[in-house]
Simulated scan of single mutants.
Amino acid sequence: MVFTAACTILGGTNEETGAPHFLQRASFIVFAISDTIALLLSCFSILMLITILFPL
Rank of each mutant, 00 (worst) to 15 (best):
residue 20 P to L: 10
residue 21 H to L: 07
residue 8 T to Y: 09
residue 17 T to C: 04
residue 53 L to W: 02
residue 16 E to N: 10
residue 43 C to I: 13
residue 43 C to F: 11
residue 22 F to M: 06
residue 1 M to D: 09
residue 38 A to D: 04
residue 29 I to K: 11
residue 23 L to W: 09
residue 53 L to Q: 02
residue 56 L to K: 05
residue 2 V to K: 08
residue 40 L to K: 02
residue 18 G to I: 01
residue 19 A to I: 11
residue 12 G to V: 10
residue 30 V to E: 03
residue 50 I to P: 01
residue 15 E to P: 05
residue 34 S to P: 00
residue 32 A to W: 12
residue 7 C to Y: 15
residue 4 T to C: 12
residue 36 T to R: 14
residue 50 I to F: 03
residue 27 S to D: 10
residue 10 L to I: 13
residue 30 V to D: 08
residue 34 S to T: 15
residue 28 F to E: 09
residue 13 T to M: 06
residue 25 R to L: 05
residue 29 I to L: 06
residue 35 D to L: 02
residue 13 T to I: 13
residue 9 I to N: 03
residue 28 F to D: 02
residue 35 D to I: 03
residue 54 F to N: 10
residue 33 I to K: 04
residue 43 C to R: 07
residue 52 I to T: 02
residue 9 I to D: 10
residue 48 M to P: 00
residue 50 I to H: 02
residue 17 T to M: 04
residue 33 I to V: 15
residue 36 T to E: 06
residue 42 S to D: 04
residue 48 M to H: 03
residue 39 L to V: 03
residue 25 R to N: 02
residue 31 F to P: 01
residue 21 H to I: 12
residue 47 L to V: 09
residue 31 F to N: 09
residue 18 G to E: 06
residue 36 T to F: 13
residue 36 T to L: 15
residue 21 H to Q: 09
residue 32 A to T: 12
residue 15 E to A: 07
residue 38 A to F: 10
residue 38 A to V: 11
residue 25 R to D: 05
residue 40 L to V: 06
residue 49 L to C: 05
residue 2 V to S: 05
residue 19 A to C: 04
residue 22 F to G: 03
residue 9 I to C: 11
residue 32 A to F: 14
residue 46 I to C: 01
residue 34 S to R: 13
residue 19 A to P: 00
residue 20 P to C: 12
residue 18 G to H: 04
residue 39 L to H: 08
residue 8 T to E: 05
residue 12 G to R: 12
residue 18 G to L: 07
residue 38 A to T: 11
residue 7 C to H: 10
residue 23 L to G: 00
residue 31 F to Y: 13
residue 15 E to D: 13
residue 13 T to H: 11
residue 40 L to N: 01
residue 39 L to A: 15
residue 29 I to T: 13
residue 8 T to K: 04
residue 54 F to H: 07
residue 27 S to V: 04
residue 55 P to G: 02
residue 52 I to E: 06
residue 30 V to H: 01
residue 18 G to T: 08
residue 18 G to D: 05
residue 30 V to M: 07
residue 4 T to K: 13
residue 17 T to I: 00
residue 16 E to R: 10
residue 1 M to R: 05
residue 26 A to I: 14
residue 12 G to Y: 09
residue 49 L to Q: 09
residue 53 L to G: 01
residue 46 I to M: 02
residue 21 H to R: 12
residue 21 H to G: 00
residue 5 A to I: 14
residue 33 I to N: 02
residue 22 F to N: 15
residue 24 Q to W: 04
residue 53 L to P: 00
residue 30 V to W: 08
residue 4 T to N: 14
residue 28 F to H: 11
residue 8 T to N: 03
residue 11 G to Y: 10
residue 49 L to K: 07
residue 7 C to G: 09
residue 21 H to S: 11
residue 16 E to A: 15
residue 53 L to E: 07
residue 37 I to E: 04
residue 33 I to C: 11
residue 9 I to T: 12
residue 6 A to F: 13
residue 38 A to E: 05
residue 11 G to N: 11
residue 43 C to H: 02
